[in-house]
Every structure is written in C-alpha cells, then in structure tokens.
C-alpha cells in the first residue's frame, strides 16, 4: 500500500500536465459552447444550452454527424481489411528485413499531412497512375473519381492512420504462441479458418483498441478531408474549422466539437463494453 501511495505521488506531475494541457482547453471549449454567438470572435454574456438545442434541432447537423461516423467506419473497415494481413505478416515473419518493414509501415507517420496529401494527386487524379492503369487494363472506360470526393478522403485517412492499426495489431499478434496456430492447423483447420477461429478472437483486444484509435483519428481529422475532399466532403471537423476559422463563431464551433467529443466517447465506451461482454 505504501508503495502504491508513493507511486501515486510520482504520478502527480504527469497528472498536472495532463490537466493543464487537456482538461483546461476542454473546459474552455465547454464554456464557449454555453454562450451565444455575437459577431466574429464575440459571445453574449449569459449561459445557455441554446447552441446545443439549435444543433440537435437541425436535421442537417444530424446528417453531418451520421456522415462523419460513416466516414470513420469506412476508414476503420478498410484499414482492418488492409491492416490485418500486414500486421500478421509483420508479427510472424522471421526475415532480417523486419526492422525495415516496420519502418516502411510507419513511414506515412513521418511525413507532414500536407505533403502526404499532395503526393496522392499524381496517383489518384483522372490522368493519374491508378486511372491510367485501370484504363490500360480495360477495367474501366472512364476515369474513376478517386479524389476530391469521399473516396479521396477515405484513401487519405486510411493511408494516414493505417500504421496505428498495424502497429497495435502486430503487437498483439506477436504475443500469440505460434504453436496455438499450429495446433489449429493440425486439427484440420486451414490457414484461413485458423486465422478466423483462433488468431482473430485472440487479437480482439488489439482489434478494438486499434479500431477505436483509427475511428477517433478519422472523425477528428481536419486537413485530409479539407484537402482530399475537394471541398465537397463536409464533416464535423471541417465544419468546426469553418465556423471558427472563417466565421470566428466560437460558440457554434465549440458546440459541434463537444457533440463530436461526446459522440466519440459514447461509441468508445460502447465498443469497450462490447469487448468485455464477449471476452
């Protein structure tokens, strides 16, 4: 017990920093959402919930929230499909190139978001690499719109956040005894069935943690939807930026940000509950 208490004291500085860096801006944001907009950069004095009522009363905003969640789910889903095999390979490979492979995986994290998004232009544009290839192969006759729309945003976000998922999953898969997979194969399950029946259930904590990280990052990302969406993918984060950045309407911006925060927290708790119930 004494030792535990000592540890508690050691945590104090970190807690103080967290409180200062995280809770105070959040409290500030919360306060802003309780005042009414009174022209650029100004709020009315009285406290009110009217911003929230106005937000919830407008079906357009519900659409925005739904659209944002859908974007998050799409990004999580595609990241899982792409990330699971890669994570599995990274966790199990014995090649001496492994550190290099890990570096390749985290490479997108080392590039600034603007550069990363610009890099997609020659690949995804109508005369870009992907479309040229598809047309040359005769798979499509008209170039696909892969950019400046939802598809572009999804591609950009998957690219940006896939490393988080892969690293989370690889760490969990690495901890699974390879003999357990051999046992499954020995008992007659093929590699795919073994993956589904053994690896997947045992990777569950990683799947949930990784998916939550990716979802949260995806629904709160601003730059990628703004740049890769071509101005036609309005989500909660770009809406917040618009309200605060161009209207200087902190009240509405803060309200939307808090709604997104609460929604994200709600989904996270739901996911964690779900994972505990099944484990």
């Amino acid at each position: 017990m004494a030792l535990k208490r000592a540890w508690g004291f050691l945590l104090l500085p970190a807690l103080a920093v967290l409180a200062a860096a995280f809770l105070m801006p959040l409290a500030n944001l919360g306060m802003k959402s309780l005042h009414l907009f009174a022209g650029p950069g100004r709020e009315q004095p009285g406290l009110t919930l009217e911003n929230y009522i106005a937000f919830l009363e407008d079906p357009f905003n519900w659409g925005l929230l739904g659209w944002t969640s859908l974007l998050g789910l799409l990004v999580v889903g595609i990241s899982l499909v792409l990330g699971l095999p890669v994570a599995y390979f990274l966790a199990r490979t014995k090649t001496r190139w492994r550190p290099v492979l890990f570096l390749l995986v985290i490479a997108p994290m080392l590039v600034s978001v603007v550069i990363r998004n610009l890099g997609w232009i020659p690949i995804l544009s109508e005369s870009g690499v992907v479309n040229s290839l598809l047309i040359a192969l005769g798979l499509v006759s008209q170039p696909l719109k892969l950019f400046n729309n939802l598809a572009g945003v999804v591609i950009g976000l998957v690219h940006a956040f896939l490393p988080f998922l892969i690293l989370t999953l690889a760490t969990v898969i690495q901890r699974i005894d390879p003999q357990i997979e051999e046992a499954s194969i020995n008992l007659g399950a093929g590699p795919f069935e073994t993956f589904c029946r053994v690896v997947l259930p045992l990777t569950r904590p990683g799947l949930i943690a990784g998916s939550l990280i990716v979802f949260t990052l995806a629904v709160s990302a601003y730059t990628t939807p703004a740049v890769m969406g071509g101005g036609r993918v309005l989500v909660m984060s770009t809406y917040v930026q618009q309200q605060i950045g161009t209207l200087l309407d902190y009240a509405t911006g803060a309200t939307v940000a808090i709604v997104l925060l609460v929604w994200g927290a709600f989904l996270s708790i739901l996911a964690l509950r779900f994972s505990k119930a099944e484990a």
Binding site: D177, Q179, I180, E182, A183, P201, L202
Partner: peptide
C-alpha cells in the same frame, strides 16, 4: 505440443 497450445479463448 510442449507448450500445450490450448486455445485460451
């Protein structure tokens, strides 16, 4: 197997 390799789940 030496490590039993039971399915923990």
């Amino acid at each position: 197997f030496q490590s039993y390799a039971l399915f923990p789940h």
